[in-house]
Design a binder for these strands. Structure first.
Lengths: 148, 148
DNA sequence: TCTGGGATTGCGAACGGTTTTCAGTATGAT
DNA sequence: ATCATACTGAAAACCGTTCGCAATCCCAGA
């Protein structure tokens, strides 16, 4: 059965090898933001002879083909998600690492405006919010707040 | 004479060595966002026997002491700026690498609101805009400001 | 002013994530 | 099936950053 990403790859004329098929499947089924190691782990469960180097290469290939998107969450390794048409951003739960996606047209508009006022045309942007759940924010041992 | 950052360091009770003095001076005089290698280059011009390891160590020290702030511009290396009270963000000129700082209270408010709606309290955030100068970007000349 | 000992430094080695090299393998067009 | 070519695995190279260690420096105390 061809996964969504596999279909996309064939559409783009990429040679479909066994490992690319497996990685495409893994990525199609992922609903989170796995890093390369995690993709490799999941791929290896389907076919243990896939090497980490191939995963790296395939991720780059898919990124270049704009099938997936690299997400830099500031933790030193690249994470990935399926490419989407609409721009969105990430809120990272610093307690659990959970990543929540959100989009805000107003925010987009405001960014455009700010860039224009500075004399620039936006070619890319990224916003990350780090936060803690409201209902847990005030409870346990008051760690002092730090605004950065 | 003692640089601004050097004074800050002494205030915080850090032992002031020759290298820390030099690095503090370099950082006090910088009005850009140098990476460690660049700080080392500038420091070495004042005192050539400062090692890159010491620069790395000192940057971390100053960061921990909240004298400077690390800025991750997504280019794989850490950049730094003096710590400021007000939160600001960066617009990166993808043609030249120039970094323009900007702040927007409305943007801050909007982020707070978005986080709250998602049930979160913000503990940190970061926004980067990548852009090209309007007057070099092609037509769509909406706002033509000299911005070299 | 001199001293002692903990903090700091320089060097190179180690590190973690990522890319590359290279020889062997698999793919898809024929 | 065949063959040129693209792809793969394993290991080495890379790059920014950190660490281990012996030598050195800073500065509180004498």
């Amino acid at each position: 059965m061809t996964s969504r990403l596999e279909a996309l790859c064939m559409e783009k004329g990429l040679k479909m090898t066994g490992q690319r098929r497996v990685i495409s499947q893994v990525l199609s089924e992922a609903d989170d933001h796995p890093d390369v190691e995690e993709v490799h782990r999941r791929a290896a469960q389907i076919d243990p002879r896939i090497s980490i180097a191939t995963v790296y290469r395939t991720m780059r290939l898919l990124e270049d083909a704009q099938v997936i998107e690299r997400v830099d969450l500031g933790d030193g390794r690249a994470r990935y998600e399926e490419a989407t048409a609409d721009h969105h951003h990430h809120l990272i739960d610093t307690r659990t690492g959970r990543i929540i996606e959100f989009a805000s047209p107003e925010l987009e508009a405001m960014k455009e405006r700010i860039a224009r006022e500075l004399g620039y045309k936006i070619v890319g942007h990224r916003l990350e919010i780090y936060g803690v759940p409201l209902d847990e924010a005030g409870e346990d041992g008051r760690d002092e707040e730090e605004r950065s």
